[in-house]
Every structure is written in structure tokens, then in C-alpha cells.
Design a protein around this nucleic acid. Sequence first.
DNA 1: TTACTAATTATGGAGACCTTCAAAAGTAAC
DNA 2: GTTACTTTTGAAGGTCTCCATAATTAGTAA
Lengths: 388, 388
Amino acid sequence: MTEQLAGGDLSRLRQLNALAVVHVLRGRPALTLTELSRDTGLSRPSTEDVVLQLQSQGWLEEVQPAPGVMGRPARRYRFRSDAGWVLGVDIGGHTIRVLAADLDGEVRHTVRTPVAITAGRAERLGAVDAAVAECLAAAGLTGADIWAATVGTSGLVDAAGRVVLSVAFPEWTGVHLAQHVGRLVGGTVLVENDSRLAALAETWRGVARYAQHVVYLLAGLRTGTGLIIDGRLHRGFAQAAGEIGALPELGWIRAQEHLRTWTGAPAGTDPDDLAGYVFASAREGDRKAVAVVRRYAKELALGASALVLALDPQLVVLGGGFSRSADVLLDPLRREIEKRCVRIPEIVTSTLGDEAVALGAVKLSLDHLQEHLFDVRTGVAAPVRPAR
Amino acid sequence: MTEQLAGGDLSRLRQLNALAVVHVLRGRPALTLTELSRDTGLSRPSTEDVVLQLQSQGWLEEVQPAPGVMGRPARRYRFRSDAGWVLGVDIGGHTIRVLAADLDGEVRHTVRTPVAITAGRAERLGAVDAAVAECLAAAGLTGADIWAATVGTSGLVDAAGRVVLSVAFPEWTGVHLAQHVGRLVGGTVLVENDSRLAALAETWRGVARYAQHVVYLLAGLRTGTGLIIDGRLHRGFAQAAGEIGALPELGWIRAQEHLRTWTGAPAGTDPDDLAGYVFASAREGDRKAVAVVRRYAKELALGASALVLALDPQLVVLGGGFSRSADVLLDPLRREIEKRCVRIPEIVTSTLGDEAVALGAVKLSLDHLQEHLFDVRTGVAAPVRPAR
DNA sequence: TTACTAATTATGGAGACCTTCAAAAGTAAC
DNA sequence: GTTACTTTTGAAGGTCTCCATAATTAGTAA
């Protein structure tokens, strides 16, 4: 609990101050030494010393001084956010998505590759390979430039990066994604459940930005959850947290069934596409459709209420494919949750759309680097890809 | 997420090293400078410097050198764990319990005062006052010596230390415990739900010592929970976490009803005492009693399963009054949980008995001090009671 | 009494920080 | 074009904290 940081000699102090400078400068435009000095609390001369050291290491870069200011023009330094790169990969049912981002988390290149929902393991992995290669090429990078990558997939994932169980794609069970993607890129490869990554993305760039405790609901053809507790992704002891839908009494397994019973769609419609027709009819006021949506919302709310009662989050975020129909789904969902819970959290709709998972994958990669590159214990090392 | 610790000047380094020395020394017998130097990683001369400073501040004390060793006898220093004190108060239905512990968490004095279950607000608070006074007197302390105190109570507690809702004792609702106990002792007064404190105690001195994620079940006349996530007590956004029993579909409200239907007890038995008879009969193999216990276990398991599925803890701890009857309760509980959950955690019985809540209260007080007295950001201040 | 052992004390040196002040490099006004 | 003003840069001197090393001290063991 007390992650003690060992004391040390003077170099440790320099380490900490270098860390402070990097922290102030990351994700911001170039700053002058005076500004850095003010923001870090260090004296001007010390700031200069630290900055020069970081520059010689390759973390900082001098940029053109700002013109047209009073006084002697100040040198300005920026964080070299392009010193390293991270990848976020989303392996979805219909789409493979790869994002390349710099160390500031700025997404620089995006690749979307369609893949048949019926594609087998080999075909899908092949599409991943192609998409990663395409993204690297577009960014002018090689796999060696990637310092960390995260792969998002449906199903249960173990700590080693293997898919332990995939209900949606039976053939997917057992695939060792960390190893597979590890062939393509350098650095650590993390593998994580897609709902969790989407939740993470919401706390980073989405509607949950300032919440410490969040319950994320992935509502779509599959139903899943992601839990943010104390600002951190909660995985559980064996990465099995959030599986509330498995409780027979709550029946998330049944939830979709309600939508599939809908008969108002054109004959021959793929059962997977039915949901869209139900929501559309409900939107137009069709009584039966509204009732179907209400039943679905109730089932969803049961599991959600269990999570809300258990965790008392500040926020519940509705994401996934169905969140596009939040206009007809959110109200019944909210009512059902209000019936059951002691304290009612805010309930909002995701705005990240279908890029949430890949974005969360980028964030997880960045968090991993943060821990290993800019940690108080280790300080800042030279800007090279950390050992795997 | 990145709790950045600002860099700083050389005094900051000394601060960190002083912290390291204190950390090594706390909760251990007196050490020599050489041993301290080895464990902190500092050089001998520096260690001496730091130790001398801490001694002059009052945190460290020299003790008699160990006799009968080769070479020049080394000075030995111990952490002055009696420089400050904390209190743990458990306001139960039948008993008020007050524990006085030193800064190492060593419980030095215990006071137990019986109180009528029917006692009203004033009478109960009076008993608390008396018990606290008695405990202070026994320890030779005054309220001013107490650096932090925690009060455990049933019911929902707000962040200010007020009981927002007490189902078991309606008259208890609204009582401002932090204020009330604050009259008696110095330092911060924290108020927390009793189930949560019991959970905390289990991770400190109980069966959950090395678990990061724990679901604690308080099974007794009331049913409650305490959640430990990432090694920390989880309260939720509005201190309402763990209220899974409120979900109508899981029905913890009904759970006790099963036990109350029991007719095998002597006529005129207080309904609250029925449970003991049921468990006893079940222990002797009475079929009907076994069935009643099984029904109770099933209801309990429903909520427990929801928590386990949501959080995937390493451990489920069964505590509370009924945990004394774990021999007949644990097996059916485990079976019901196994039916419902994806990954089955260890399920064990608490060993702390009815001191768990007070012990957890001590621990919470200590954690509070730890944050304010020995934090990496603040360093170690002089050993005086921190401002409220 | 003498040898051995391990802690203490003293010394010198290096690294990182701070404050202060003079010099430099621009803009703005005349 | 010169002068005044503003702000940054660069250099000097000082303090603090740490480290390594060597000389001294206070015990035990033979």
C-alpha cells in the first residue's frame, strides 16, 4: 500500500527534477526556460541545467523563438513526442482498426480494414497483420519504432495476452494475440478486453473525463462492461471482473432475445441487423417497438443496477453500437436503474463512437509507458524503446 | 493518475531519506546505524545524519546497545511508536468497543462496554463517551494525545461523518458522530460503515492479508459488505458502494426471513436469537434446519455472486456473527457461489471475531496518519498531532 | 596484556541546488 | 540612427547533502 520510493543521492534529485520538467512539458506547446522554471518550481539556472541534460538525451528539442516579444528572445523547448510511438489495435467483428499515436497520445495515423464477420482465425489474424503494416507504412515507421502496443478483442483475456474464452467467435479461443502482434512490433504488447478499453477511452477523451469511478456499458450485439475504479481500470484477480452478465438471475444473455423477436423488419433481414429496425420503429412511436426496447432496457438495467449498487460510480456511460439509439434507449434505462438503486449516478451516452476501443488501446499503451519510462522510481531514461 | 511529486531542492532529498529511514524502522525492533544503512541504501555517514535529525525532532529514540557482541557496541535506535496514538471505536448494537493503539498499530488498551440493544440515541452516545474516557484513562492519555480516531457504525455514513441512514436503529439516523467524538479527542475523526472497517481489518491482521481484491460479507442479524479493491477500501462516489443487498432481484432483505421461520426453538425466544438455534440444529443434522440454512445461504450467495462477478476478487471473507457457524454455513454458500460465477475465488471464514470492526477503525486511523504524516509529498514533520 | 572486531568520528570531494549580478539581444520610442 | 526599456542569458559564489576513505575508539576473546 505504501509504495515506498527509496531515497538516494543527488542524482536521484536530478532524476526527480527531470521528471518534473518532462511532466510540465508533455502535451503542451514549447515553453521557455522562465516558464518551465515557474511551473516546476525550480530556479532558472537549475531548470536550464535539467533542460540541457534532457536535450542531450534526446527528450527535448529547441524550437524557433517566438518573434515580436519584448526583451531578449527566449529559447523555447518542446517535448519530443515523436521520439517514440504506440499502437492501438481493435480487432472487431466487422472491422480491424489500427491507430498510431505519438507519446503525447496524439493519433497521427488511422487504418480501418473491413473483415468478414464469418472470417476464421487465420483470415482475421492476416487482416490484423495487413492493417498494422499499412499503418506503420503510412506513418513512415517500422515495427522497431513502436514502444508499446495494445490489442483489444472481445472475450476473456489472460495476463499473458491469450484469449481464454471467446463466445462471439469460438474459433478465436486460445489465440495468443500478444505473441502474434509481438512479431510485428517492438516493445511490450498488451491484450485487453474491448469493453474495458472503451471504458478507459471514455475517461481519457470521452464523457467520463473527470470521474474517478465509472461503470461503462457496452450495449450492442454483445453486452459487456468496463469498470473504472479510483481512476484506474479494474481487471480483477484473474482478469474476470465485470462479468455481471453471467449471473443467471440478471440474464444479460436473454437481453438481446427481446430485440430478435421483432417482426417489423423486412423478411430475410439478418437477425444481427434487426436491432436497428426496432430502434427506428420505436423512434417513430410504434407501440410494440417501444415495448420491446423497454424490455431490453430492463434486462440491461438489471445488471447495470447490480454494478451501480456494488460500486456507487459517479457516472454510468452507455456505449457500444446501440448507443447510437440512445434517444430511445437512455430514458427507459435510466428509469429502470432509478427503480433499483440507492444513489442514482449520472447516466450519459458515449460520444467516442466506434473508435472508443482503439483509442482505449492507445491509452493503455501510453499508461504502460508512463509506468516504465516516467515513473518516480525509475526517473527518465534515455529515449529508446524499453526492453520487452 | 500520475500523482506527480514535484521535484525540489536538497532539503527535499533529505525529506525523502528521512522518510526511508522511518519506513524501514517502523514496526520493527531497534536497529543499529549499520543495519539502517543497509536497509535504506544510504551510506553510513548519511544515515547517521538523518537519524540524528529524526532523533532531535523526536521521532527516534536511542536504546541500550545490545550486549555481548564482537567489536564496538553499536548505538541502536527505535521508532517512537508511542509519540502519538489512535483510537478505534466500534458502536455496535449490544457493545461499545474502544481500542487505543500506538503508531505501529499495536493495540495497547481495550475497553468493552455493554449497551442495551434498545438504547436510544442519547444513551448510546453517553456509553460511547464513557468508554472513550475509560480507555484514555487506562492508557494514561488525554484526548489531546489522540492524533486520529475512527468510529465504526452500521448504516450509511456521509463524507462529513454523519449517519445518513440507519435501518437497524432508526433513531441513529442523522447523528453527527464525527462532531460528537471530536469533542472528546484531538486530531481528525473519521466515521465509517462497520462492514467496511471489518473488511479493512481482514486485509490488515486477518485472513485477507495478502489479497489485493477482497469481498467481505458481514453475515449476521444485519447483512452488509465491505469491498477492498487494489488493496484499498472502496467507498464509491457518495460512500454508497457495496449496497448490493438493496437490489430487489437479489433480496438480501429476505435472507434473514428464512431463519426467522424456524419453529424448533423454545417458545418465547427472541426472534434475534433464533439464528443460533437453527445453526445448532443444522449442526446436529436436523433435516429441516439444514434446509433453512441452505435457503439462507442461497440468498446470501446471490448478492455475493453479483459482487464476485463484478469484481473478480481473489478472496471472499465470511464475517459477522453468523461466521461462528461457518461449519454449517460455508459449504452451502460455496456451492451456491460456484453455481453462478465464472471464476471461483477462495472463500474463507474470518478469524478476527467481534473485534474486527474496532480493529479496522484503528487501521483506518493509521492509514489517515500515514497519508498526512509520512507521505512522499510532505515528508516527515515533527511528531505532533496534525491539525484537524 | 595483546589481538581482533566492528562502530564511530573526521576529512576531503563531488553533485545539485540557490541567489545575485553583469552582459546580451531583442523591441519601442524619439 | 540613437537611446531607453525589457527580458533572457551567462557567470560567480555559496550552501546543502551525499559519498568514499581513513583514523580512532570501545568493546570481546585469547
